[in-house]
Protein backbone atom coordinates (compact mmCIF):
# COMPACT_ATOMS: atom_id res chain seq x y z
CA UNK A 1 0.00 0.00 0.00
CA UNK A 2 1.29 3.40 -0.96
CA UNK A 3 2.33 5.90 1.69
CA UNK A 4 0.78 8.59 -0.43
CA UNK A 5 -2.90 9.44 -0.48
CA UNK A 6 -2.33 11.16 -3.80
CA UNK A 7 0.50 10.59 -6.19
CA UNK A 8 0.81 11.90 -9.70
CA UNK A 9 3.63 10.88 -12.00
CA UNK A 10 4.70 13.30 -14.74
CA UNK A 11 1.16 14.51 -15.23
CA UNK A 12 0.44 16.79 -18.19
CA UNK A 13 -2.80 18.39 -19.29
CA UNK A 14 -3.62 20.60 -22.23
CA UNK A 15 -6.58 22.78 -23.12
CA UNK A 16 -6.18 22.91 -26.88
CA UNK A 17 -2.63 24.03 -27.52
CA UNK A 18 -2.26 25.56 -24.06
CA UNK A 19 -0.43 23.48 -21.46
CA UNK A 20 -2.19 23.90 -18.13
CA UNK A 21 -0.43 21.20 -16.15
CA UNK A 22 3.17 20.40 -16.92
CA UNK A 23 5.05 17.35 -15.71
CA UNK A 24 3.36 17.51 -12.33
CA UNK A 25 4.49 15.01 -9.71
CA UNK A 26 2.44 15.55 -6.59
CA UNK A 27 3.06 13.46 -3.51
CA UNK A 28 0.51 13.94 -0.77
CA UNK A 29 1.37 11.83 2.28
CA UNK A 30 -1.43 10.06 4.14
CA UNK A 31 -2.70 11.97 7.15
CA UNK A 32 -1.33 15.30 5.97
CA UNK A 33 -2.94 18.63 5.29
CA UNK A 34 -1.40 19.44 1.97
CA UNK A 35 -1.57 23.11 1.06
CA UNK A 36 -1.76 23.35 -2.71
CA UNK A 37 -0.70 26.87 -3.46
CA UNK A 38 -0.48 28.98 -6.54
CA UNK A 39 -1.68 32.27 -7.97
CA UNK A 40 -4.97 32.45 -9.86
CA UNK A 41 -4.82 30.45 -13.06
CA UNK A 42 -1.81 28.40 -11.93
CA UNK A 43 -3.55 25.09 -12.64
CA UNK A 44 -4.81 24.21 -9.15
CA UNK A 45 -8.44 23.62 -10.06
CA UNK A 46 -7.45 21.75 -13.22
CA UNK A 47 -5.23 19.46 -11.14
CA UNK A 48 -8.03 18.83 -8.65
CA UNK A 49 -10.41 18.00 -11.51
CA UNK A 50 -7.87 15.55 -12.88
CA UNK A 51 -7.58 13.96 -9.44
CA UNK A 52 -11.36 13.48 -9.50
CA UNK A 53 -11.23 12.04 -13.01
CA UNK A 54 -13.45 14.85 -14.25
CA UNK A 55 -10.76 15.74 -16.74
CA UNK A 56 -9.25 12.88 -18.69
CA UNK A 57 -5.70 11.88 -17.78
CA UNK A 58 -3.45 9.26 -19.34
CA UNK A 59 -3.34 5.96 -17.46
CA UNK A 60 -0.60 5.40 -14.88
CA UNK A 61 -0.24 9.09 -14.05
CA UNK A 62 -2.69 9.52 -11.15
CA UNK A 63 -2.81 7.25 -8.11
CA UNK A 64 -5.19 7.57 -5.18
CA UNK A 65 -4.09 5.52 -2.16
CA UNK A 66 -1.92 3.58 -4.58
CA UNK A 67 -4.78 2.81 -6.98
CA UNK A 68 -4.57 3.96 -10.56
CA UNK A 69 -7.57 6.25 -11.14
CA UNK A 70 -8.60 5.58 -14.75
CA UNK A 71 -8.90 1.84 -14.09
CA UNK A 72 -10.33 2.12 -10.57
CA UNK A 73 -12.46 5.23 -10.94
CA UNK A 74 -15.33 4.34 -8.61
CA UNK A 75 -13.08 2.68 -6.01
CA UNK A 76 -10.94 5.84 -5.90
CA UNK A 77 -13.92 8.19 -5.78
CA UNK A 78 -15.43 6.21 -2.94
CA UNK A 79 -12.56 7.38 -0.76
CA UNK A 80 -12.77 11.01 -1.82
CA UNK A 81 -14.91 13.98 -0.92
CA UNK A 82 -14.53 17.19 -2.83
CA UNK A 83 -15.41 20.82 -3.11
CA UNK A 84 -14.38 22.19 -6.48
CA UNK A 85 -14.55 25.91 -7.29
CA UNK A 86 -17.81 27.44 -6.15
CA UNK A 87 -19.98 24.81 -4.46
CA UNK A 88 -22.25 22.96 -6.84
CA UNK A 89 -25.65 22.87 -5.20
CA UNK A 90 -29.20 22.59 -6.50
CA UNK A 91 -30.62 26.08 -6.06
CA UNK A 92 -34.25 24.92 -6.10
CA UNK A 93 -33.71 22.48 -3.24
CA UNK A 94 -33.22 23.43 0.41
CA UNK A 95 -29.87 22.93 2.11
CA UNK A 96 -31.16 19.81 3.78
CA UNK A 97 -32.59 18.41 0.55
CA UNK A 98 -29.24 18.94 -1.14
CA UNK A 99 -27.63 16.82 1.55
CA UNK A 100 -30.37 14.18 1.42
CA UNK A 101 -29.92 13.95 -2.34
CA UNK A 102 -26.24 13.29 -1.76
CA UNK A 103 -27.13 10.63 0.84
CA UNK A 104 -29.28 8.92 -1.80
CA UNK A 105 -26.42 8.98 -4.31
CA UNK A 106 -23.97 7.60 -1.79
CA UNK A 107 -26.40 5.05 -0.40
CA UNK A 108 -25.97 6.26 3.17
CA UNK A 109 -28.50 7.01 5.90
CA UNK A 110 -30.40 10.29 5.51
CA UNK A 111 -29.80 11.16 9.18
CA UNK A 112 -26.32 12.16 8.11
CA UNK A 113 -27.85 15.27 6.53
CA UNK A 114 -28.97 16.70 9.88
CA UNK A 115 -25.65 15.84 11.45
CA UNK A 116 -23.73 17.64 8.70
CA UNK A 117 -25.96 20.72 8.89
CA UNK A 118 -25.12 20.99 12.58
CA UNK A 119 -21.42 20.50 11.90
CA UNK A 120 -21.24 23.41 9.46
CA UNK A 121 -23.67 25.59 11.43
CA UNK A 122 -26.54 25.57 8.96
CA UNK A 123 -29.21 23.96 11.15
CA UNK A 124 -31.27 27.18 11.23
CA UNK A 125 -31.13 27.52 7.45
CA UNK A 126 -31.81 23.82 6.79
CA UNK A 127 -35.18 24.44 5.17
CA UNK A 128 -34.24 27.54 3.23
CA UNK A 129 -33.72 27.21 -0.51
CA UNK A 130 -30.01 26.86 -1.19
CA UNK A 131 -30.31 29.39 -4.02
CA UNK A 132 -31.13 32.01 -1.41
CA UNK A 133 -28.06 31.22 0.71
CA UNK A 134 -25.28 33.78 1.04
CA UNK A 135 -21.90 32.94 -0.50
CA UNK A 136 -20.56 31.87 2.90
CA UNK A 137 -23.56 29.63 3.56
CA UNK A 138 -23.19 28.01 0.15
CA UNK A 139 -19.56 27.39 0.92
CA UNK A 140 -20.50 25.75 4.23
CA UNK A 141 -23.06 23.59 2.47
CA UNK A 142 -20.40 22.65 -0.09
CA UNK A 143 -18.09 21.58 2.72
CA UNK A 144 -20.90 19.57 4.33
CA UNK A 145 -21.49 17.84 0.98
CA UNK A 146 -17.80 17.00 0.72
CA UNK A 147 -17.72 15.59 4.25
CA UNK A 148 -20.99 13.69 4.28
CA UNK A 149 -19.57 10.40 3.03
CA UNK A 150 -16.86 10.51 5.70
CA UNK A 151 -14.15 10.14 3.03
CA UNK A 152 -10.54 9.27 3.73
CA UNK A 153 -9.33 11.99 1.39
CA UNK A 154 -10.76 15.46 1.04
CA UNK A 155 -10.04 17.75 -1.89
CA UNK A 156 -11.01 21.28 -1.01
CA UNK A 157 -10.59 23.96 -3.62
CA UNK A 158 -10.35 27.32 -1.87
CA UNK A 159 -12.80 26.29 0.86
CA UNK A 160 -12.68 29.54 2.79
CA UNK A 161 -13.75 31.62 -0.21
CA UNK A 162 -16.46 33.99 0.92
CA UNK A 163 -16.34 32.96 4.57
CA UNK A 164 -16.18 35.48 7.39
CA UNK A 165 -13.20 35.36 9.81
CA UNK A 166 -15.17 33.15 12.18
CA UNK A 167 -16.03 30.76 9.41
CA UNK A 168 -12.41 30.64 8.30
CA UNK A 169 -11.27 29.73 11.81
CA UNK A 170 -13.98 27.05 12.08
CA UNK A 171 -12.91 25.46 8.81
CA UNK A 172 -9.29 25.61 9.83
CA UNK A 173 -10.05 23.88 13.14
CA UNK A 174 -12.24 21.34 11.39
CA UNK A 175 -9.41 20.45 9.03
CA UNK A 176 -6.97 20.02 11.90
CA UNK A 177 -9.47 17.87 13.80
CA UNK A 178 -10.19 15.69 10.76
CA UNK A 179 -6.52 14.92 10.23
CA UNK A 180 -5.34 14.68 13.82
CA UNK A 181 -8.30 12.83 15.34
CA UNK A 182 -9.70 10.93 12.40
CA UNK A 183 -6.57 10.35 10.35
CA UNK A 184 -7.99 11.89 7.19
CA UNK A 185 -5.89 13.41 4.44
CA UNK A 186 -6.76 16.83 3.12
CA UNK A 187 -5.56 18.60 0.01
CA UNK A 188 -6.55 22.21 0.27
CA UNK A 189 -5.87 24.70 -2.48
CA UNK A 190 -5.45 28.40 -2.00
CA UNK A 191 -3.83 31.42 -3.54
CA UNK A 192 -3.00 32.79 -0.11
CA UNK A 193 -0.04 31.29 1.69
CA UNK A 194 -0.96 33.00 4.97
CA UNK A 195 -4.23 31.07 5.01
CA UNK A 196 -2.55 27.71 4.55
CA UNK A 197 0.47 28.34 6.72
CA UNK A 198 -1.31 27.74 10.00
CA UNK A 199 -2.85 24.43 9.15
CA UNK A 200 -0.80 22.77 6.43
CA UNK A 201 1.76 20.13 7.25
CA UNK A 202 2.93 19.92 3.65
CA UNK A 203 3.00 22.44 0.87
CA UNK A 204 3.09 22.26 -2.90
CA UNK A 205 3.54 25.46 -4.84
CA UNK A 206 2.41 25.52 -8.45
CA UNK A 207 2.59 28.23 -11.09
CA UNK A 208 1.79 28.05 -14.78
CA UNK A 209 1.14 24.34 -14.37
CA UNK A 210 4.57 23.55 -12.93
CA UNK A 211 5.28 22.39 -9.42
CA UNK A 212 7.94 24.76 -8.10
CA UNK A 213 8.20 23.54 -4.54
CA UNK A 214 7.01 20.50 -2.67
CA UNK A 215 7.85 19.56 0.88
CA UNK A 216 6.90 19.98 4.52
CA UNK A 217 6.01 23.37 5.89
CA UNK A 218 9.33 23.34 7.80
CA UNK A 219 11.26 22.76 4.62
CA UNK A 220 9.51 25.78 3.21
CA UNK A 221 10.45 27.81 6.28
CA UNK A 222 14.05 26.66 5.89
CA UNK A 223 14.11 28.20 2.45
CA UNK A 224 13.64 31.56 4.02
CA UNK A 225 16.96 31.67 5.91
CA UNK A 226 17.88 35.06 7.28
CA UNK A 227 20.37 37.17 5.39
CA UNK A 228 22.56 40.15 6.27
CA UNK A 229 21.66 43.35 4.50
CA UNK A 230 24.52 45.81 4.22
CA UNK A 231 24.21 49.31 2.81
CA UNK A 232 27.54 50.72 1.58
CA UNK A 233 28.93 53.56 -0.54
CA UNK A 234 30.96 51.31 -2.89
CA UNK A 235 29.09 48.06 -3.36
CA UNK A 236 31.49 46.66 -5.99
CA UNK A 237 34.48 46.96 -3.66
CA UNK A 238 32.44 45.66 -0.72
CA UNK A 239 31.32 42.61 -2.70
CA UNK A 240 34.92 41.83 -3.59
CA UNK A 241 36.10 42.17 -0.01
CA UNK A 242 33.26 40.06 1.40
CA UNK A 243 33.45 37.25 -1.15
CA UNK A 244 37.25 37.26 -0.77
CA UNK A 245 36.73 36.57 2.91
CA UNK A 246 34.40 33.63 2.51
CA UNK A 247 30.98 35.36 2.74
CA UNK A 248 28.24 33.93 0.56
CA UNK A 249 26.84 36.82 -1.47
CA UNK A 250 23.16 36.22 -2.22
CA UNK A 251 22.54 39.27 -4.32
CA UNK A 252 23.82 42.78 -4.81
CA UNK A 253 21.96 45.80 -5.93
CA UNK A 254 23.18 49.34 -6.10
CA UNK A 255 24.14 50.34 -2.62
CA UNK A 256 22.98 47.17 -0.83
CA UNK A 257 24.40 43.69 -0.57
CA UNK A 258 22.71 40.58 0.83
CA UNK A 259 24.95 37.91 2.25
CA UNK A 260 24.07 34.67 4.02
CA UNK A 261 23.67 35.02 7.79
CA UNK A 262 26.10 32.81 9.65
CA UNK A 263 26.04 34.30 13.13
CA UNK A 264 26.34 37.52 15.08
CA UNK A 265 30.15 37.32 15.42
CA UNK A 266 30.57 36.97 11.67
CA UNK A 267 28.32 39.94 11.11
CA UNK A 268 30.59 42.07 13.35
CA UNK A 269 33.65 40.79 11.52
CA UNK A 270 32.23 41.68 8.13
CA UNK A 271 31.47 45.16 9.39
CA UNK A 272 35.00 45.84 10.65
CA UNK A 273 36.51 44.24 7.55
CA UNK A 274 34.63 46.64 5.31
CA UNK A 275 35.47 49.69 7.43
CA UNK A 276 39.15 48.70 7.59
CA UNK A 277 39.24 48.47 3.81
CA UNK A 278 37.87 51.98 3.41
CA UNK A 279 34.25 51.15 2.60
CA UNK A 280 31.69 53.30 4.37
CA UNK A 281 28.95 51.18 5.94
CA UNK A 282 25.65 53.09 6.20
CA UNK A 283 23.74 50.26 7.81
CA UNK A 284 24.06 46.58 8.60
CA UNK A 285 21.41 44.20 9.94
CA UNK A 286 19.67 40.86 9.52
CA UNK A 287 16.64 40.40 7.30
CA UNK A 288 14.28 37.48 7.10
CA UNK A 289 11.87 36.99 4.25
CA UNK A 290 8.34 36.26 5.35
CA UNK A 291 6.58 33.33 3.73
CA UNK A 292 4.46 35.62 1.62
CA UNK A 293 7.55 37.08 -0.06
CA UNK A 294 9.03 33.64 -0.33
CA UNK A 295 5.89 32.48 -2.09
CA UNK A 296 6.07 35.43 -4.46
CA UNK A 297 9.74 34.70 -5.07
CA UNK A 298 9.06 31.05 -5.83
CA UNK A 299 6.14 31.74 -8.13
CA UNK A 300 8.00 34.44 -10.02
CA UNK A 301 10.72 31.96 -10.97
CA UNK A 302 8.95 30.63 -14.07
Amino acid sequence: MSVFAIETVGLNHHFGSQTVVKDLSLQVPKGSIYGFLGPNGAGKTTTIKILLNLLQSPSDTVFIFGKEITNHRTACLRQMGSLVEQPAIYAHLTGKENLINRCILLGITKNKATEMLALVGLTDAANKKAGKYSLGMKQRLGIALALIADPELLLLDEPTNGLDPNGIIEIRNLMIELTSKHGKTILVSSHLLAEIERTATHVGIINKGELLFQGTINELHDLSKPSIKIEVDDYAAATNILSGNGAEVINEKEGTIHIAYTGKADMGNYNSLLVKNGVTVYSIGTEKKDLEHLFLDITSKN
Partner: peptide, 17 residues
Protein backbone atom coordinates in the same frame (compact mmCIF):
# COMPACT_ATOMS: atom_id res chain seq x y z
CA UNK B 1 -30.83 20.93 -13.81
CA UNK B 2 -27.11 20.03 -13.85
CA UNK B 3 -26.01 22.74 -16.32
CA UNK B 4 -27.80 25.49 -14.41
CA UNK B 5 -26.41 24.56 -11.00
CA UNK B 6 -22.99 23.60 -12.34
CA UNK B 7 -23.45 20.19 -10.76
CA UNK B 8 -22.11 17.91 -13.51
CA UNK B 9 -18.79 18.01 -11.69
CA UNK B 10 -20.27 16.79 -8.40
CA UNK B 11 -22.46 14.23 -10.11
CA UNK B 12 -19.47 12.72 -11.88
CA UNK B 13 -17.22 12.83 -8.83
CA UNK B 14 -19.53 10.45 -6.96
CA UNK B 15 -18.54 6.79 -6.76
CA UNK B 16 -21.08 5.81 -9.42
CA UNK B 17 -20.23 4.55 -12.86
Amino acid sequence: IEHKNDTWKTLFSQPLN
